[in-house]
């Protein structure tokens, strides 16, 4: 399913259709994430990917406007480059532990401590929240700062030449 939507995005020339397909893609991705037990992430992906980013893309599309031109160059070179890279990476995956391998390194190091001690140390049963806000508080602080900076950047880029800010209206 996701693959079909991705291919559709790649070949579709109408940008409006691309944005709507992108929204569908995000929902499918959120479903896949629920299946992978990442409920927090799925919730974020559904609201961010399918909600906000669609609105933003549509807003930007309204400002940019237009159909995509047919690519003039031959698409075979980029296609070949992508396929070769995917091939190399797939070859690389054979060195990785299989799906749901409890002995994989990812499950061995800090995670048992999080799962065993998070409730005792923080009193928060949702380990994702505990790790996000407490154990990895520095990461989240930096990340909040990045979001803030991006917002400030958008303001700086789009502020000038804003006429009639009072009656600006979306359709």
């Amino acid at each position: 399913m996701m693959a079909v939507v991705t291919v559709a995005i790649a070949v579709q020339g109408n940008l409006f259709a691309v944005v709507v397909l992108g929204s569908i893609y995000s929902f499918l991705m959120a479903t896949a994430l629920v299946a992978l037990d990442a409920v927090d992430v799925a919730m974020t992906e559904a609201s961010v990917g399918a909600g906000i980013s669609t609105v933003l893309l549509l807003g930007a599309l309204h400002l940019v406007r237009g159909e995509e031109q047919k690519p003039r160059g031959r698409p075979w070179l980029p296609l070949a480059a992508s396929v070769v890279m995917a091939g190399v990476l797939v070859y690389g995956t054979f060195g990785l532990p299989g799906f749901s391998d409890a002995g994989a390194p990812i499950h061995q190091h800090v995670v048992p401590r999080y799962l065993n001690d998070a409730v005792r140390e923080t009193g928060v049963p949702n380990v994702v929240t505990a790790v996000l806000a407490s154990y990895r508080g520095y990461d989240t602080l930096g990340e909040t700062t990045v979001v803030f900076t991006a917002g400030a950047g958008v303001i700086a880029l789009l502020r000038r030449r804003r006429r009639d800010r009072r009656d600006g209206d979306v359709r």
Binding site: A38, D40, V41, T44, E45, V48, G49, I106, V110, V111, Y114, L115, V127, V128, V131, L132, R136, D139, T140, E143, V146, V147, A150
Partner: peptide
């Protein structure tokens, strides 16, 4: 839970 945390922040960024 660890990848969930990392990706949660990655989505918003």
């Amino acid at each position: 839970p660890l990848p969930h945390v990392l990706i949660l922040t990655a989505i918003v960024v």
